[in-house]
């Protein structure tokens, strides 16, 4: 009987901590309840003579996964306190009822205690003789060598994907640099907003990583010069972008049709500049 009593106590802790994960406003508290839940499962693994996995459970789940949860929680810092009434509504009560029905069905099925499965040969005696880890290793490196190798592929997918998603982009997201052709403008650069930089191309006359072109007051040869420079750009990253770049032309600028045609050919989109003076 002491075994059963012990089981029931740990099971109760396990269920209560599982409920604690859900019915809790603070994400940090939920993570701590999750830790308790994982810990109780490790206890069960030891009771079931799966010591290797019991240790792995503590290392992987408690050591890595819960820490990762806490880390991300602190990184994005959005401990959003959901109010209880937002999730105890009719729809969710229905879901809970459905879940209870499912649970009853599964529960009665598993409670019959008649197991039809084929018995293997990893008996307690074998485990006692060779040790848990050896038995698992023997199985892992013979019968299950293919799934073991596939874990490597899976981890590669994870690494590649996480690096792609979490990596900072090469350039700041909101930063935009505009090349301006305006012969009435004397300054070199202008910073109308924190994320926007306007550069006077007529003064600089070189190429740089701009995101947009604005032609406010310029002659046809000046524009032709820009286009020629862009066409002969050797930087492959920039070259790939011109075809999608937007070029805004002030209708008052009176460029010849040929020049506009040339611009259309070079840039992705040529549009009339509206809202002059208003920063987009």
């Amino acid at each position: 009987m002491p075994g059963q009593i012990f089981f029931l106590i740990v099971a109760a802790i396990s269920v209560i901590s599982a409920l604690g994960v859900i019915f809790n406003r603070s994400v940090v508290h939920s993570a701590l309840f999750l830790l308790v839940n994982f810990g109780t499962l490790a206890v069960f693994y030891f009771m079931l003579n799966a010591q290797f996995l019991g240790v792995a459970q503590i290392l992987v789940y408690a050591g890595a996964i819960v820490v990762l949860f806490l880390f991300v929680e602190m990184l994005i810092g959005s401990d959003l306190g959901e109010k209880v009434d937002t999730w105890l509504n009719g729809r969710n009560l229905l879901l809970i009822a459905l879940g209870l029905v499912l649970l009853t069905v599964v529960g009665t099925a598993v409670f019959e205690n008649t197991i039809f499965g084929a018995a293997g040969n990893t008996t307690v005696e074998v485990v006692d003789e060779f040790g848990q880890t050896q038995v698992i290793a023997a199985s892992l490196f013979t019968d299950f060598v293919l799934p073991f190798q596939l874990v490597a592929v899976l981890l590669s997918v994870g690494v590649v994907g996480v690096v792609w998603l979490a990596q900072h982009q090469q350039r700041q997201r909101f930063r935009r640099i505009i090349a301006v052709l305006d012969s009435t403008w004397a300054e070199e650069t202008q910073r109308p907003g924190p994320d926007l930089l306007r550069v006077n191309w007529l003064r600089r006359k070189t190429l740089f990583d701009f995101d947009q072109v604005e032609i406010i007051q310029a002659t046809d040869p000046q524009v032709a010069e820009l286009v020629a420079m862009v066409e002969h750009d050797t930087d492959s990253w920039r070259r790939s972008r011109y075809r999608q770049m937007r070029c805004l032309v002030d209708p008052d600028c009176k460029l010849s049709e040929d020049t506009v045609q040339m611009l259309r050919h070079t840039f992705g989109e040529v549009k009339n500049l509206v809202n002059k003076g208003v920063v987009a």
Partner: peptide, 16 residues
């Protein structure tokens, strides 16, 4: 793991 223990088979543990 429970099945693996009661069926004396390691498959369940490998799956875990």
């Amino acid at each position: 793991i429970a099945f693996s223990r009661y069926l004396d088979s390691t498959t369940g543990q490998i799956f875990v």
